[in-house]
Design a binder for these strands. Sequence first.
DNA 1: GATATAGTTCGATAGTCATAGAACATTCGA
DNA 2: TCGAATGTTCTATGACTATCGAACTATATC
Lengths: 112, 112
Amino acid sequence: MKQYPHPTADQINLTCVLHALSDPVRLNFVRCLAEQLCEQRCGAIPTPVAKSTMSHHIRVLRESGLIRVRTEGTQSLTSLRKDEIEAKFPGLLAAVLEAAKEDEAIIALSEK
Amino acid sequence: MKQYPHPTADQINLTCVLHALSDPVRLNFVRCLAEQLCEQRCGAIPTPVAKSTMSHHIRVLRESGLIRVRTEGTQSLTSLRKDEIEAKFPGLLAAVLEAAKEDEAIIALSEK
DNA sequence: GATATAGTTCGATAGTCATAGAACATTCGA
DNA sequence: TCGAATGTTCTATGACTATCGAACTATATC
């Protein structure tokens, strides 16, 4: 049961986080994660891209420090590192998520 | 005296803004602008890149809606569209600027 | 063991991006 | 008018990126 490396809070970098959030597919994924209380299967979140592409995006999000990924059985469970990001960049994630709520282009993605 | 097109508040897009902010050179530029009360000459802000590169970055920032650029004589004056961004994405710019203050990689750029 | 499920990795591709130098445009001073 | 100052545009380049399909890995189920 392979697990993946995650940056520590110290290693989380502002420009990496902003870059990770600047892709519509990734931003939509983060938005969906934020609305859930528990860990989510990657495949449970609707997206218009191939699963190999999604795997790539999840890697970018994980390496930026935004999400935590844990494999269990055949599935890989993701969760938002909300508290850690909030501690490091106060208000940032909340502001982005609030802004994403209004963004039609992002919302449209979750309906595909 | 050529002037440049700017997106209206309606046209400002979240992912474009995040992308514009995700480059260290641009984020540093925005951070410097935010600290000033008045418009700034492009060249007045220290950066480690060539002026043609800076011109490119300023274009990206302008097209994203983050800054306003106005030419006057031989110089081009830039200012942050703080209020408009705040109205569109409440708290976002403030959170990013606050986070950038702590980011050593960004601060280092302004000392070059 | 065979098959299905859930993701990952690999290889390829087309596109974007940051970068710089050279040439150019425009304006201001001497 | 001739330079100097300040940026912009053009072109090129190397790096990175989003995308996909195919092959693969690992686990679960029958």
